[in-house]
Design a protein around this nucleic acid. Structure first.
Lengths: 143, 143
DNA sequence: CGCCGTACATAAGCTGGTGATATAAGTTGG
DNA sequence: CCAACTTATATCACCAGCTTATGTACGGCG
């Protein structure tokens, strides 16, 4: 690990805390929100495909899906090809919940962004593709 | 909120999840780690100065400090000028715990960073001051 | 001095996680 | 073609870490 990497890690460490506090406390837990976004982003998934990437145990995902279903944000369907499997998909209400959460965070963030100089703002925009890439790499590594 | 802001928010949203999963399971909760870093970063604090910026209730901070104290990562001192107050400070073991956690995250991140092109890496480094600034702005707004 | 506000602690209860284990469906070798 | 094994999900008992409501002790002030 280079010195540059360490600097990046240190910067990200603090920034992570900042982002964490930017969405105070909604009705959705961190994992719940993340799972809904995944379902929105890449469609229905079997339960067994969900828990590992979310970093929780299988029972935790079963419980989470049960909660989400109870609140009408996701639904269980049975896989016709595999009687054991449960296919989880996001509902319209789920999409709205995700959108609302995104909006709340975005507007809080927007307020902060206006405190940057135009040059600083540009550096952030310029870094977005790289951040996206890092997320892709992390997702690949997990699978 | 501009379209650019929305793009930044969307990018950060996913990146946040990536960072979250980069430190899998430690002995420290998110709040515990964040509080220790704060104590390391800006010295001893009274308990009442800690809970608000960490986004938890006062009893939660009392309990957290009790846990940290029990594990030897932080210590309570009484303020000679104010008998009600409790001053919390990080111990040497606490610093080590923070350093270790930082190292684990940094090495995982480092691996990802090597997947970037040099140009992308540069855009990330260039954005660091802006991210730092955003954290400062968020901290100001909270106080 | 008496009173109120402030700083912290305690209590009871909830949410969301864990590991161990049960159930039920698919898969496979003899 | 069925017994044994594996895989997918659910259930159970338990725990950590948060919440609100309330208790306690000290400080400042009229």
């Amino acid at each position: 690990m280079s010195a540059g990497d360490a600097a990046v890690a240190a910067g990200f460490e603090r920034f992570y805390e900042t982002l964490r506090r930017l969405t105070p406390r909604g009705p959705l837990s961190l994992t719940a929100a993340s799972t809904l976004r995944r379902l929105e982003r890449s469609g229905p998934h079997r339960l067994c495909e969900l828990y590992a990437p979310e970093g929780i145990s299988q029972p935790a995902m079963t419980q989470l899906v049960t909660r989400l279903e109870k609140e009408g944000l996701a639904e269980r369907t049975s896989d016709p090809n595999d009687g054991r499997a449960v296919v989880v998909s996001i509902t319209e209400a789920g999409r709205e919940a995700v959108a609302h959460r995104r909006e709340v965070r975005a507007s809080a963030l927007s307020e902060l962004l206006h405190g940057l100089t135009p040059e600083q703002y540009e550096t952030v925009v310029a870094a977005l593709p790289a951040l996206e890439r890092l997320s892709d790499l992390a997702a690949d590594r997990a699978s």
